[in-house]
Nucleic acid binder design. Structure first.
Lengths: 242, 242
DNA sequence: AGATTTAATTGGTCTAATAATTAACAAAAA
DNA sequence: TTTTTGTTAATTATTAGACCAATTAAATCT
């Protein structure tokens, strides 16, 4: 029997989105560039403005563009970053598809390797940033948000210093998840208890002295300690909530 | 001067989306449940149908709901899966934010650990699946798509068998990225060359004999070998394209 | 020159209508 | 009976057209 191709399978907005995405990926539009206005795009694609808007929403939701209101506003191509990956991880945790012990197991595997690579590839800029971050940690008492900010910064710097963007993306997600958990628990300055001041010092010192094995081992210790604290607290938080 | 709070900062659709997402996460709507129709939601939220539709698009784009057309259609809560995480990784690769050597470095770290955990936690079901997958690999010659499907299946099974959903999510992303790269190169049955039949045998045998260290080491060898092939081919592909 | 108003552009939102898709059921035909 | 073909109803998909809101640049006024 003769078979026919279906006339159209996907939504119109999907086809518009696919074409726009392709033209961004292939470099027709580069980060910073402005796409034609919604009305122009609707004209060019020969679809309604709403179809165009839904396509733009998709690109916005996946991090490819952002929109600004007003004259000299419009839809602008953004330089894709790790934010949307991180959001996907956080959503999975919120939907109970990833547990705290599983997160900790990943941190114990990945973070020592990041520290090892950072020690191997360290440059002056990152050395300076690490020293500053370590000092900042030991200075002030802060709000929960500030405290989290300061205590995660060492990890961010190491992730950037390790020279592997994949590791960096993953570490950012690990940090975002950890922060989500701590903020969920967040009763009476808990973060100071599970992450006492000075916990990062051995790691940073090993990295600064460019000793990969020592850095990895120090980070492993840190990840295990902190991880165990996190697991225990989240466990008791869950049971207290029931 | 007295300052007032802005009445509304974000888009209406964002606020609708946030409320809907919250009610899904808190269990008001469970996977499989049908949300009220767009018109009803518009009525309840006191916003236009368009605002509701954009909110639903967002939830769709992040994997929380799916929509069906027609009578008995509507918006249905889906069981959040790893697809959207994987898409985020693939997008980062397509936008050149992650390179092939970086991907390989991650695989060399993570996959041995997955094999180790799989060997430790193996049950009968996964043992059977592994045997079947190994046999299927050595049977037929296929199209590129089928070939990729069959050769990645061992990795999927191991990821599921390892018992850590975070590792499973990451491994799925690693596979999706690898497939994207192979399909990009995809000239004249290349996959058979970079991934010859039988490459998985030592890994599977070690896992089946429940020897974690041997499994990890076998997988490490596999990841290194395959990874080096992938790096070389993608490199020559890039230079031939210029 | 500097402040203020106005106009123009663009995304944001709304209303109201029509089209397309699908399931269920009824009716007709084989 | 079985199979095919209409019919209907519910719901999303799509459109058109209008107006709102934000923003900047130009025009106007002081």
């Amino acid at each position: 029997m003769m078979t026919f191709k279906p006339i159209r399978q996907s939504r119109i907005s999907n086809e518009v989105a696919a074409q726009l995405k392709q033209s961004i990926l292939s470099g027709v539009f580069k980060p910073g560039d402005k796409l034609p206005s919604e009305r122009e795009l609707a004209e060019q694609f020969q679809v309604s403005r709403i179809a165009v808007r839904e396509a733009i929403r998709f690109l916005e939701n996946t991090g490819f563009v952002s929109t600004r209101h007003g004259v000299s506003g419009g839809t602008f191509v953004t330089d894709l970053n790790f934010e949307y990956l991180t959001n996907a991880f956080v959503d999975l945790f919120l939907a109970d598809k990833i547990t705290v012990p599983e997160l900790v197991e990943m941190r114990v595997l990945v973070e020592p390797e990041i520290a090892r690579l950072a020690a191997k590839n360290l440059n002056k800029k990152h050395a300076r940033l690490l020293k500053e971050a370590l000092e900042a940690e030991e200075l002030t008492i802060n709000t929960v948000d500030e405290d989290l900010e300061i205590k995660t910064s060492v990890h961010y710097i190491l992730a950037e210093a390790c020279g592997n963007h994949f590791f960096e993306a993953l570490e950012r997600s690990l940090m975002a998840l950890t922060r989500a958990i701590v903020k969920m628990i967040d009763t009476n300055n808990i973060s100071a208890f599970i992450h006492p001041v000075g916990m990062h010092r051995p790691v940073v010192e090993a990295v600064l002295s460019k000793d990969p094995d020592a850095a990895a081992e120090a980070m492993r210790q840190h990840a295990l300690e902190f991880g165990q604290n996190l697991i225990n607290l989240e466990k008791s938080f869950r049971s207290s909530k029931k």
